[in-house]
């Protein structure tokens, strides 16, 4: 009981802090900077989710933009259908908007998670690098499908029924409330028996099997969770810019996500958070160098892989930096 109360108090306190930061952000920053801050939050969600499958589990998805797209379209569509219902039931105030927005995000996550299952089931039974190809194909196919789906606006994109586009639900508060929730959930998952088993799969799949680890089931579950997370990010993204277009989810978007998790350190949640912020900021800094951006990202990937494949943090979390280093040095002296 005391525990539940304490948790509720922390929960409320975190929401209040996020709300306060949101107010400060809106007061102190230009709209341009605010947009970068929101994008950084969405990137963090993408990176933390992708890291679960690419980093922790050691399977490689290079088509996560496809799941983001499914989440974005799903949330946008469901949100549009849901809004009138919510308005009738709850009025037209903030509560009603919050209700339909978050339900729409969850619906988007559900669609994305289900497509993750469809993609993951055949490819995750086999060696991980097949997943790379299947997800690459999936990312392309999903764009072709949205390009041709007339009820979702086909190539021009989906903007809802209102001429002004989708409602701008995505505010600082909602982005960072979702960031906090997802980071905590994925962190808890990573540091649990499931997370240990996923890491064991990455380290040695045959040994993990011999230790009764249901490898396929866990890989597929992790992949679906990762896809659902990308779906949430997609829903937030859709409601930030009035609509979703197929070209928002090109292969480049998947590459952005991979850069996020590689720069910070594959397998580290803190690394993914730093990487998400890094990509949001560097995208803006390189705005004038658009055509060179991907060349630079590509070189960055190659150089990191050759020089420091573990990324900035390796698999450590920020708060472990000190502790693990101590353990490491102790070992070196004993050798």
């Amino acid at each position: 009981m005391k525990r539940t109360l304490l948790r509720a108090a922390i929960f409320v306190a975190v929401l209040l802090v996020i709300y306060g930061l949101g107010v400060a952000c809106e007061a102190g920053f230009t709209e341009y900077v605010q947009r970068i801050v929101l994008l950084a939050g969405i990137n963090v969600i993408l990176a933390v989710g992708l890291n679960l499958i690419n980093g922790t589990t050691g399977q490689f998805s290079i088509g996560h933009a496809g799941f983001m797209a499914v989440g974005a379209y799903g949330a946008a569509y469901v949100g549009v259908q849901l809004a009138p219902v919510a308005h009738r039931a709850l009025g037209t105030g903030a509560v009603s908007n919050a209700f339909s927005f978050n339900l729409a995000l969850l619906a988007g996550a559900l669609f994305a998670g289900l497509s993750g299952l469809i993609v993951g089931l055949p490819s995750l039974r086999l060696r991980g690098d097949y997943l790379a190809v299947v997800t690459l194909g999936f990312g392309e196919i999903i764009r072709i499908l949205f390009n041709n789906a007339t009820f979702l606006g086909a190539a021009t994109g989906y903007f809802g029924d209102d001429p002004s586009g989708l409602p701008a639900y995505t505010t600082f508060f909602w982005v960072y409330a979702w960031v906090a929730l997802i980071v905590v959930l994925i962190h808890n998952l990573t540091f649990s028996q499931t997370g240990r088993s996923l890491t064991a799969i990455r380290e040695d799949e045959i040994a993990a099997e011999a230790m009764a680890t249901p490898t396929t089931r866990l890989k597929v579950t992790a992949f679906a969770i990762s896809a659902a997370t990308a779906g949430i990010a997609g829903g937030l993204f859709a409601h930030m810019q009035a609509g979703v277009r197929p070209e928002d989810f090109r292969f480049e978007k998947s590459i952005d996500m991979i850069v996020m998790i590689i720069v910070g350190g594959l397998g580290s949640i803190s690394g993914a958070i730093l990487g998400g912020i890094f990509v949001a900021v560097s995208l803006e800094l390189m705005r004038d160098l658009q055509q060179y951006r991907l060349v630079l990202y590509a070189l960055l990937l190659i150089v990191i892989m050759i020089v420091r494949p573990q990324g900035l943090l390796g698999r450590r979390e920020l708060y472990q930096l000190f502790r693990k280093r101590k353990a490491g040095s102790g070992l070196e002296s004993s050798r």
Binding site: R196, E203, D204, A208, A212
Partner: peptide
């Protein structure tokens, strides 16, 4: 030897504790 090399000794053992 197929231990999970990057995990700690305790984690290695715990992985096998599904039941």
């Amino acid at each position: 030897i197929r231990i999970f090399r990057s995990m700690t000794v305790a984690e290695n053992v715990m992985v096998a504790g599904h039941h």
